[in-house]
Design a binder for these strands. Structure first.
Lengths: 235, 235
DNA sequence: TAGTGGTCTAGACCACGGT
DNA sequence: CCGTGGTCTAGACCACTAG
């Protein structure tokens, strides 16, 4: 238990939803009930619920309550639609390159800050599958800020973000991205098992974390034919 | 002047930024200064600033202040507000089909709610240019909830969302979207002046408004070669 | 140390939905 | 009518940044 209260409530509710203890259409406890359950004020409860909305887990209806939305397996801050029925066995992640110190790549589209470029670079590459089919190639780079064991250890539940959270108390607080439609090159075509030249969605991401000198840069290539990429926005 | 205070502050600051009265890297007045300027509490000021963050206009730095962000060469914030607000002066918009009552199209990818499908459908189609080049084809559908004059009148500053806000006090409060990379068909290729089969980014959007029975459905086709689509996420 | 944003409390009143 | 979420007040204490 660490970090702000609203994040603890947020994680508590998120886990319940992800584990299926609340399912699609269920009503969450009202804000006032959550207040008394956790002995906190409505401001804090509402901050927690707001994050769940932005992640696409719930939806509020004025005068009614907070409702659990269709479940989606999150890939970072984007969602792949269809994962809802396909949780568990049907989602698989394979390392093509395990985390190691490598060069900062010029493949990265979003400018890397100077502070970070002065540090060494940790890189890893993964391929993500849904129902046995490869749907996304993922390359990630981040500055080496001496997170002991990050390179050698396995990830918590195959999730890099959960690893950062559980082992190092670093949380993702936001992202910037650029989206492009491109023709698949030979490498991407081969890995995603599509024809060369087939259109793929190229997503360039910069994840911001609770550590101001740790941003994570990702380049994703997605076959969106069966599984479009989902995105939620809430003002 | 109408609507909640935080949105008035939000609009006030946004306009200043858009008009260039604050420019890249400038520091906004501190939260406490805004409190006293507008005679409101920090909660309200922070709510306004939070929306500016989510729209990508500003960035906060703990212990320092709120900074106006650089606008990169991308069609930013597309999932949220319209194009004209996001990109600035170099944008031109041409109607291919003016707003009129038409059929609900099966082109719409995100399910239209039953409540809405029972109503008539207003549709319009626009082509968007940046620096004289066509970059996006846009089709929009919404239920006809008797917004007098919407069909006949011109849009406020060529922005559909501004028109909704100024004339009808309807605000966009969020969106859901699905992203796909596709090959351009003949119609899209011709309009965007690209070769048939060229990869385009297909964005299916459902905008939620402050009116619970008014959602706006859009299908966008974007040439992302020169201008990638930008997206901001803030937890 | 002074000023900034980040978190949180303990209330209040309002608008909306259903009984 | 009551319970729900939406907005807002008037404070408090903390963590971070900079002179």
């Amino acid at each position: 238990m660490t970090g702000p209260k609203y994040r603890q409530i947020h994680n508590y509710l998120k886990e319940k939803i992800q584990k299926g203890l609340y399912s699609e259409g269920d009503i969450l406890p009202s804000e006032n009930e959550l207040c008394s359950s956790f002995s906190i004020t409505r401001t804090t409860v509402r901050k927690a619920l707001e994050e769940l909305i932005k992640e696409g887990f719930i939806e509020k209806k004025h005068g009614k309550g907070s409702f659990v939305k269709e479940r989606r397996q999150s890939l970072g801050l984007l969602n792949v639609k269809g994962f809802s029925e396909a949780v568990g066995q049907n989602v698989k992640t394979v390392f093509l390159k395990k985390p190691a110190i490598r060069e900062w790549s010029n493949q990265i589209q979003i400018p890397v800050s100077l502070m970070e470029k002065q540090k060494a670079c940790i890189h890893f590459e993964r391929l993500r599958f849904v129902k046995g089919e490869p749907v996304m190639l993922e390359n990630n780079w981040l500055p080496d800020i001496k997170l002991g064991g990050l390179i050698s250890n396995e990830f918590v539940e195959a999730s890099f973000f959960k690893t950062l959270s559980r082992n190092y108390r670093i949380e993702i607080i936001g992202s910037e991205s650029e989206l492009r439609a491109e023709n698949a090159g030979s490498k991407i075509a081969e890995l995603l098992k599509i024809k060369e030249g087939y259109p793929v969605l190229h997503i360039s991401l910069k994840f911001k974390t609770s550590n101001p000198v740790l941003n994570i840069y990702s380049e994703l290539y997605c076959n969106t034919q069966k599984y479009p990429i989902g995105n939620i926005y809430h003002l």
